[in-house]
């Protein structure tokens, strides 16, 4: 998929752990792992909003488009 999820990079920048982010966003660590590994088929605006709020970043910092 040409959409790359850069959650790992943002988590490292903020010095945050996956389970902390999952708690803040209100999703399970399993679902966060699906998102991090790029296995997710779609992301809800509400989830994206919660992630951006927790990581204090823009959607573009998390999602990146790379042409196949």
């Amino acid at each position: 998929m040409p959409i790359i999820v850069n959650l790992d990079i943002m988590l490292e920048k903020r010095g945050m752990k996956s389970n902390e982010l999952a708690d803040m966003v209100g999703i399970t660590t399993a679902n966060l792992s699906i998102l991090k590994t790029g296995k997710a088929r779609a992301i809800r605006f509400s989830t994206l909003e919660a992630i951006c709020e927790a990581l204090e970043c823009q959607p573009g910092d998390i999602l990146e488009f790379i042409k196949d």
Partner: peptide
Amino acid sequence: QVDNELTI
């Protein structure tokens, strides 16, 4: 259903 389950 798979799509729905993989929508985070």
